[in-house]
């Protein structure tokens, strides 16, 4: 047991420093007892994660029954066209959007991929119902795949590395630049069968400039601190 030389309080026998003023205890006569049990435990508790299984089940029942009802009506009553495919697709889409989020809470990346897949599937169903389905493979699918890929990449980077808000912003702008270029490329290839860019070059260049500025700010400590000071909220 020691007293803090700085603030004068008596310390617990296990204390190696003063909790109030952070002064280290140096007491040759009575050094801190490192074997003594500290006054408070060291283990950190976590709030239990709750899966909303009840809600998930309810949503599943709702979507399945809607899809089933539409299918039955389509088969036996309103037989004009395969309109129930839209309803069933939409049900599946909504189900994938809502239910995995409730159950697979920790694996967000998986959810992004699932969402991408189900959007592609729904567009495919629409394409099958229309006369000319070339737009699906020409434009829709590439745009959906690119979007999913970029969102997934962002999610992965944020999860895997410790990122600052500046880095995240720069990353988003970078992705945005590439995404617009990708969109124009697929549109032009679909319409004119040529790989060339015009308007997306403007967007892409602007994004690249923003990325360059943000990277400079990030790399330069003084500049970064200045920005933090000015923009703190």
């Amino acid at each position: 047991m020691s007293y803090c030389v700085n603030c004068g309080v008596e310390l617990h026998k296990s204390a190696a420093f003063c909790p109030l003023c952070n002064t280290v205890v140096i007491n040759p006569v009575n050094p801190p007892d490192t074997h003594a049990k500290p006054p408070y435990p060291a283990e950190i508790g976590k709030v239990e994660n709750v899966n909303s299984r009840g809600v998930a089940l309810l949503l599943t029942v709702v979507f399945v029954s809607i899809a089933l009802a539409a299918l039955l009506l389509n088969l036996f009553l309103f037989k004009e066209g395969l309109w129930s495919a839209f309803v069933m697709g939409a049900s599946l889409l909504l189900w994938v959007f809502t239910v995995p989020v409730l159950i697979l809470r920790p694996s967000r990346l998986l959810i992004i991929l699932l969402d991408g897949a189900v959007i592609s599937l729904y567009c495919f169903i629409i394409a099958r119902q229309t006369d000319d389905a070339s737009w699906y493979f020409g434009i829709a699918l590439p745009i959906i795949i690119m979007l999913t890929g970029f969102v997934f990449l962002f999610g992965y980077v944020v999860k895997r590395f410790k990122t600052s808000i500046l880095f995240k912003t720069a990353f988003i702008f970078g992705e945005l630049g590439f995404y617009t270029v990708g969109i124009e490329l697929s549109i032009r290839y679909f319409l004119y069968n040529s790989f060339s860019i015009r308007w997306s070059a403007v967007v892409g260049t602007s994004c690249l400039i923003i990325v360059a500025v943000l990277t400079t700010v990030m790399k330069n400590t003084r500049l970064r601190e200045e920005v933090q000071r000015r923009l703190h909220f």
């Binding site: 603030c7 309080v9 909790p19």
Partner: peptide, 21 residues
Amino acid sequence: EMLFFCSLIKKGIPVRIESNR
């Protein structure tokens, strides 16, 4: 916390500190 307990010490009240910091 430091100002509080130091003030008690100055007023002649001995304080023993325990913490998880």
